[in-house]
Design a protein around this nucleic acid. Structure first.
Lengths: 346, 346
DNA sequence: GTTAGCACTCTGACTAGTCGAGTGCTAACA
DNA sequence: TGTTAGCACTCGACTAGTCAGAGTGCTAAC
């Protein structure tokens, strides 16, 4: 059996109608509301075929039809093809840019704003870098016994730690230690640093060894933190307004899923790894997370200095407004990459 | 009418039973399950009195009774009085202490852990200080045109910003600027700094003015960020497991409330302001947040260096396990204050 | 002051019936 | 051969009625 033009039209009509009502769609409704020039009976025959082809599902014997994941997929692919790359700058970005100084804050604001605008849930990861390289390490004397260690790494990421020392220090000692650390560690990532290198840094003097041990400790901690990404969610409760989640069991399992870090990480990682610079759509069971089988994800990665750095996901019902959401995200990602790159180079 | 001993017993029985079942409690149930030595009829009379006194409510004509906010309040006050200060160290604190380096991370872990252990929702604010005072400002040259500004403030809080400059700088210039800034700003809080002071810092040299303008900008930003507190929630979806929130409308309004920043801020601020070193309980409509009228809050403040710094709240149903939760929180707060003080002094 | 008894009320579960929306199948039509 | 009208059938949603159970308030008796 072939999916001819009329079948496609009918499928589109079913999906469109279901998108509006969240209710199974019958043959009579379609015949009346979309003038395809055929009677309900004919449409019934076609619908029977569509069901056989796997594009629609009948929840029970005398109900109308609803789209299957395969049906949604076909529809979404059609939408994506048709969509022209009409570009308009997102107004709120300018606003956010002005208020945010840090990359992380900007990303959070964007996700929050996106959740408000779309009325879906959003997910965002802070930049995740593997093997961040050390650029520069500064040791600064705060008091005579308080030492500030500042680690500057690639992309101008900065972390600092305050160390309280047993014995007093002086600037001359610090300068010497600083030169030594920098000459050994500059350009290194965490896994480049071996025991031999650590031995060389620590040196032989007992007092210096004590200080260096503490300093190295916080340097490693800093780099480890830079390598890691955080994930934030917004607008999860938007899901509970939707008619398809009026069942407490369903709503509850969704809310729980959106609180579970491993699930969120899974979404972000999958997006991140399959990055090809485009917006991706995952419908229902296409992702393998059971608790999210009634949801769709629209995901994309963002980039800093042309390198992929993190991911954004919009989570909504399967009948979500793909067209608008996708185009929103497309535009966003275009501007955001530029903005983040600026921020990281400042 | 007086609340004599038997009435109290019956009230306690009603509350206890309601705590277990979340269902209205009838006179017969009480007579059977708690041997008070009187018949259901007598209990009915007493219940009628209790209702008149405002401690219990009858949801509808032929249902049993449920506690009113006033009834809960009486019960909670009794529990709080009885509770002996049996102190046991919370095991997980040691664990968390080991893994966390930053105050913020430690607080987050605690809130997360608390949500898991209690099966309620938790809320935590990062330390909020008003009028944070500047302790020390460092200007560090990263590259010839990149300047790192490090602001060290009271309680050893550190914030850093990287500034990209139009013209190159040298260490000698930086040292001069640094001395000038520190002599003017040390010990100041944001509101102490006036225009006159800013004028003095900026000086007369055009080049220096340009640099100083940018530097001051990020210093103000840093202090403003230190004064602000962030709020984090965990375990909100725990609420949806409870029988009293099986109604989607209720569940949804609760989830929405727990996402709204102003509501969370309200809870934290109220707790923070009424701090007297003790655990506080807010039952139902005792707080003036409509969306939380079906919930109770158990709240407390935590302290750093003996000064109140932030707040923790546990949010659960009105029939939550006050006794255990309170004693948990009491123990936690005892250890946590110490731990945070340690972390802030290191 | 306590209790037994009774009439009453409300809820929830169950049943039966009706209505409307929808289907599939068949036979007739163009 | 594709399209359509007609018809029997199915299912879910709604309504009304019944019934048992849990609970109450009131009264009279202990």
């Amino acid at each position: 059996m072939k999916l001819d033009e009329r079948k496609q039209e009918i499928l589109k009509a079913i999906i469109n109608n279901y998108f509006e009502t969240a209710l199974p769609v019958g043959s009579r409704t379609i015949s009346k509301q979309y003038n395809l020039g055929v009677s309900p009976a004919t449409i019934r025959n076609e619908m029977s075929d569509l069901e056989e082809l796997g594009f629609i599902i009948q929840p029970h014997a005398s109900a109308g039809r609803i789209p299957s994941d395969k049906g949604y997929r076909l529809y979404v692919d059609m939408v994506m093809q048709l969509q022209k790359a009409e570009y308009r700058k997102l107004v709120y970005l300018e606003e956010l840019k002005a208020s945010a100084g840090r990359i992380e804050d900007l990303l959070k604001s964007i996700a929050k704003r996106l959740a408000e605008e779309t009325n879906y849930a959003t997910l965002i990861s802070t930049p995740q870098y593997k093997k961040t390289r050390i650029k520069n390490i500064q040791l600064v004397e705060v008091n005579s016994q308080d030492l500030l260690v500042i680690v500057v790494a690639e992309r101008n990421q900065v972390k600092d730690y305050l160390i309280h020392l047993e014995q007093p220090i002086n600037q001359e000692l610090l300068t010497r230690l600083s030169v030594c650390i920098n000459s050994e560690l500059r350009g290194m990532s965490l896994e480049d640093i071996d025991l031999e290198c650590i031995r060389r840094i620590k040196g032989n003097d007992a007092q210096e060894r004590r200080i260096m041990t503490e300093v190295l400790d916080v340097i490693f901690k800093a780099i480890r933190q830079m390598d890691e990404a955080d994930i934030f969610t917004y607008g999860a409760s938007n899901m509970m307004k939707l008619p398809e989640f009026q069942d407490v069991g369903k709503a509850s399992s969704i809310m729980r899923a959106l609180e579970q870090e491993d699930i969120l990480e899974d979404i972000i990682n999958t997006t991140f790894e399959s990055d090809d610079g485009n917006v991706k759509i995952v419908i229902g069971e296409e992702n393998n997370i059971q608790d999210l089988k009634d949801l769709s994800l629209i995901t994309t990665s963002y980039h800093i200095n042309g390198e992929k750095a993190g991911a954004i996901a919009i989570i909504g019902p399967k009948r979500m407004d793909y067209e608008n959401t996708i185009s929103n995200l497309r535009m966003l990602i275009k501007d955001i990459d530029e903005l983040l790159t600026q921020l990281s180079q400042r």
